[in-house]
């Protein structure tokens, strides 16, 4: 990573800090309209959907099966109630076995 990384980091730090700080200092007690609050609350879930698909299918170039298998394993472990760490490690284990034997 070059100097552009550090500019990016500065930008990320600012846009993360500002929304944390403004309501506690500048706004001090003013409320947002409920619709805006609703939309803001939705964002974390929506962004996860967009991040997972379709990128997960292409984690290994030219081998979609690898991604499909990984996605399947991750969803299965998560649905069975595994925590974030067990989903990550379990999926890696499945794919490690796959890349050792296939």
């Amino acid at each position: 990573m070059g100097p552009s990384y550090w500019w990016m980091l500065l930008g990320m730090a600012l846009v993360t800090y500002i929304p944390r700080m403004i309501p506690l200092t500048v706004l001090d007690g003013k409320e947002l309209p409920p619709v805006v609050q609703g939309v803001l609350r939705n964002i974390p879930y929506a962004v996860l959907g967009a991040l997972i698909f379709p990128a997960i299918l292409f984690v290994q170039e030219g081998n979609i099966l690898f991604g499909v298998l990984g996605a399947g394993a991750a969803f299965l472990i998560a649905f069975l109630g595994g925590g974030v760490m067990s989903v990550v490690l379990g999926t890696i284990a499945v794919l490690a076995v796959y890349s050792l034997f296939v």
């Binding site: 993360t16 944390r20 706004l27 007690g29 003013k30 609050q37 964002i43």
Partner: peptide, 24 residues
């Protein structure tokens, strides 16, 4: 990188809600 910063902003404006309700 500029788009990464914008994505960061979009993902993190939810904190705005949190600190707003925490303020009280």
């Amino acid at each position: 990188p500029l788009l990464i910063v914008m994505n960061t902003f979009i993902v993190n404006i939810r904190h705005f809600l949190m600190t707003a309700s925490l303020n009280e």
